[in-house]
Design a protein around this nucleic acid. Structure first.
Lengths: 153, 153
DNA sequence: TATTGTTATACTCTATAACTATA
DNA sequence: TATAGTTATAGAGTATAACAATA
């Protein structure tokens, strides 16, 4: 016999009671908000999260190779190429051949790259201060510790 | 004059000292780990995070519409269509026309859908217990509260 | 006129295989 | 043979515009 269709009614409010028991669910939803706000924060600099991350790591570690950078960013080497292409095209970094290993590039920030990086980092600092405004230092440190533990580091 | 190229050397270790000052950075990295493990957890059920989330919400809120579900999942309606298509093709849910509004579908789980949902939820519970093994209940509650606050809820 | 579900489309991020040039 | 960077390609996830059916 066919299923009874008598009690088909749209719920007036959608409950996420099962999902909200999971920490991962809250992490995803919170991270979505953070990511959206970060994207807006970086837009004036014409940077995305990936180009921003790459630029900061290159400024902090001048001379690193694309393989090293891809490992640090936890992305595949092929996906890094277009990111580096973009940063180089905008003259924020240079690809310099390494004399001792002519297969590899040393990634070096330009002066413009270093300046943009400084400004972007300051903007991201303001973005974090705004997003995590009610968070005291102890809780902040505890969260970083917990998140690092999850990551396995 | 050209830039001096004398001190081009690959760093032996890549430092992320600037980035690790940001909570968002730790959230992203931790969430990547959670997401990867969740993907593996759901694979035996032939579910992805999106199809899993949709199935759970449909089981918890039988009869809800696609518009309601898209809002609950925080995704655009067009992107939900293929997700519902897949769940329906696998006979885990049904699209039933609402008598009072023939534009809308009421999404109803099948018996098979409810069973798969139960099993998947149990597997995700185990996955969370494993990932957050060192996390005591107080810290867990504090994290959920903090993440909810970031989300603006 | 507005809304539900849909199609088409495009952009980003991600993942893998295969190529080149160097080692 | 192995590695660095590259190309090509394919799969997800996400976003917007526009359409048919219905309200």
């Amino acid at each position: 016999m066919p299923a009874p269709e008598q009690d088909i009614e749209q719920p007036t409010r959608v409950s996420d009671e099962t999902l909200r028991r999971f920490l991962g669910y809250h992490m995803k939803r919170a991270f979505n908000v953070v990511q959206a706000d970060l994207t807006a924060t970086l837009k004036p600099f014409d940077l995305r999260m990936l180009t921003y991350t790459a630029l900061v790591l290159i400024c902090d570690n001048p001379g690193l190779s694309q393989t090293q950078l891809a490992a640090a960013m936890d992305i595949e080497r092929p996906n890094l190429v277009v990111i580096i292409d973009e940063l180089e095209r905008r003259e924020l970094i240079n690809r310099t051949r390494v004399p001792t290993d002519r297969r590899a590039y040393a990634l070096i920030p330009t002066l413009a790259g270093k300046r943009l990086c400084e400004q972007a980092v300051a903007a991201v600092q303001a973005h974090e201060a705004k997003l995590f405004v009610g968070l005291d230092d102890d809780m902040r440190a505890a969260m970083i510790e917990t998140l690092s533990k999850v990551r396995g580091t």
